[in-house]
Simulated assay, not measured.
Amino acid sequence: MTVEELAVDHGDLALGGFELDFYHDGVRRRRPLGAGWNIRFEQAPPVRPFDWSKGGTSFAGWYYSVTNADHVGYESWLERDRLILLDADPEVRGIASQPFWLHWHDGVRRRRHAPDYFVRLADGRGRVIDVRADDQIDDAAAQAFEASQRACRSVGWEFARVGVPDPVLMANMRWLARYRRRRCGDRRDVADELLRVFGQPTPLRAGACSVGDPLLVLPVLFHLLWMGVLAADIGTQLLGSDSLVHAAKVAGR
């Protein structure tokens, strides 16, 4: 079945009206959306380089993702923060930054847009994410996000435009991200004892000290919080010695 026939069959011209421009097996390719949507974009390299120039307006960098077991690029602190949240999400199985150019014609001229992230979820769904603060969305960006949403809807991907996360939650997640690597949880004996101690809500530092030397115990505790095996109110209060920690009902990955 051709792309045009597929578009008619599904009643959505977006399948043929949009094109994807991406790298696959080291080769640059360009295909209609209806013919390229099933590429594993969570493994795709970026389609354009990041701006590393000194004195520039962006803040590009590489974030080590434990989900990917590899580095993922970002172009702003806001994108970096979103990467942290995605990396901690147990539903996320793969993350790629700027995985493709989306091409379309808006009726006046040809347009293109590279979304910030493509995410693969545990149930196999794809999610396209653009990161932009509410007060930084101009007409061109709004049109690009609207087009991206339509393209995603036509192939069953989710689309999300996300802005600035809650500052308290983000401060806590930046701290916990320091302990995201699996080596922080290598002490299985310490982890088991922490799960026993925090079987009931217990202040963070008191519970850690009851297990052993805080210098050895706290990294394991913070890793378990990152993983979702332990839980605390990280959405409304900054983590501290008196934060109540308890074993989570459902463990993260």
Rank of each mutant, 00 (worst) to 15 (best):
251 A>N: 04
62 W>Q: 10
50 F>S: 15
8 V>H: 04
97 S>Q: 11
18 F>V: 05
96 A>D: 13
148 S>D: 06
143 Q>S: 07
15 L>T: 11
39 I>V: 12
145 F>V: 11
208 A>K: 08
121 L>D: 01
174 R>K: 07
132 R>P: 00
61 G>C: 04
68 N>R: 10
54 K>D: 08
78 L>I: 04
128 V>E: 04
140 A>I: 11
113 H>R: 12
205 R>W: 12
159 F>L: 05
157 W>R: 09
88 A>C: 09
66 V>Q: 13
197 V>I: 11
134 D>M: 13
63 Y>S: 02
166 D>G: 09
156 G>F: 04
10 H>Y: 12
210 S>G: 03
183 R>E: 10
247 A>L: 09
146 E>G: 15
169 L>D: 02
13 L>D: 09
78 L>F: 10
139 D>R: 08
209 C>E: 08
241 S>N: 07
209 C>L: 02
195 L>W: 12
92 V>K: 02
68 N>Y: 04
64 Y>V: 00
17 G>S: 06
226 W>R: 02
99 P>H: 10
1 M>Y: 02
70 D>S: 09
22 F>A: 05
152 C>V: 06
179 Y>W: 10
163 G>C: 01
79 E>V: 02
167 P>G: 12
22 F>C: 03
182 R>E: 15
246 H>C: 07
20 L>S: 05
118 F>K: 02
120 R>L: 08
2 T>K: 11
142 A>F: 09
175 W>M: 14
41 F>L: 07
93 R>M: 08
100 F>G: 05
6 L>Y: 03
91 E>Y: 00
169 L>A: 05
36 G>W: 03
212 G>R: 07
115 P>S: 13
182 R>G: 15
82 R>F: 09
236 T>G: 00
154 S>T: 09
163 G>Q: 03
61 G>S: 14
57 T>C: 05
134 D>I: 07
101 W>F: 11
50 F>I: 08
4 E>N: 09
159 F>A: 14
37 W>C: 06
58 S>N: 13
26 G>I: 03
187 R>I: 00
82 R>I: 10
5 E>W: 02
70 D>G: 07
76 S>F: 13
146 E>T: 10
237 Q>R: 09
51 D>N: 14
209 C>K: 15
193 E>N: 06
100 F>T: 03
242 D>F: 01
205 R>I: 09
71 H>K: 08
219 P>F: 02
184 C>F: 10
219 P>S: 01
51 D>I: 13
30 R>L: 10
145 F>D: 02
77 W>M: 14
208 A>N: 01
38 N>Y: 13
99 P>T: 06
37 W>F: 10
175 W>Q: 12
149 Q>K: 05
126 G>H: 06
142 A>I: 06
205 R>F: 09
23 Y>V: 13
45 P>C: 11
2 T>Q: 04
97 S>A: 10
14 A>E: 07
6 L>G: 07
101 W>N: 15
10 H>N: 14
91 E>P: 00
232 A>Q: 01
173 M>G: 07
239 L>V: 03
71 H>C: 15
28 R>K: 14
38 N>G: 02
123 D>C: 14
114 A>W: 00
181 R>F: 07
10 H>V: 00
